[in-house]
Design a protein around this nucleic acid. Structure first.
Lengths: 120, 120
DNA sequence: ACGGGTACTTACTTTATAGTGCGTACCACC
DNA sequence: GGTGGTACGCACTATAAAGTAAGTACCCGT
């Protein structure tokens, strides 16, 4: 599991148009996808908690994002057949691997956002 | 410049709707933005080289992405007033900081893309 | 005089993404 | 028996992003 940048990037070429990594990258870096992954990295959450945590997300977008991330194998969905319904979301091991790379990025953006926006 | 995930994320809240980090995150994780940053991290490049490197990008999208990244202070644009025109693009120190967080992510996606797509 | 190279811009069209509002199922509580 | 809570699905509309195609400017070599 070596991750030397130069070598690894050459191994599966993200720059190639038809490389599957392109599609995955789009899912991973989608507007709400990033926030969902980071939120679930902090702790597993129910639907409603996610909705409240991620300000501004509509129900439709949250559902859609969760379905995509579940299909990609990043998120685990566990529905309890109780009334009222209760659905728990958490990260899979794969999702945790992704979160490990996403959190430094989001953290960095958070720390530097003021400087960046101020540049305009 | 501590980067303990839990603390740092709480410091500037990406989950807040009106936080400037939201806009920056959108630029940073845009479809072509990621590829431009990673490409320039490997070496500074001219317009034409970038266009050839990043397969599938249209001239319009490349120009637009570069303008956004330049405005955000990630990319430096140096135009030589020669004929034919020659424009060199490179990362600023800020851009290099971003690339340091982006490359592990892209590398990881590249290494795991097959597994992820295979999951469907 | 014509074609080629470079780095774009602009106008137009298509596609993707996102928002809005309404419906559903079931039960518990008042 | 009406209201509220949970976790959605669906249809429709609006907006934003992206693709397509063509045009521009300048000079150089043939």
């Amino acid at each position: 599991m070596t991750e030397d940048p130069a070598r690894a990037i050459r191994a599966t070429n993200v720059f190639a148009a038809n490389c599957p990594s392109r599609r995955v990258l789009d899912h991973v870096t989608s507007k709400w996808g990033v926030l969902v992954i980071v939120a679930l990295a902090q702790s597993p959450m129910r639907w409603g908690a996610l909705r409240r945590r991620i300000e501004g997300v509509s129900e439709k977008m949250l559902a859609q994002t969760l379905r995509t991330l579940e299909a990609d194998g990043f998120v685990l969905r566990e529905a309890q057949p109780t009334i009222p319904p209760r659905v728990d979301y958490s990260l899979t091991p794969l999702g945790r691997g992704l979160a490990d790379r996403l959190i430094p990025l989001v953290t960095w953006v958070g720390n530097n956002a003021d400087e960046i926006v101020g540049a305009h």
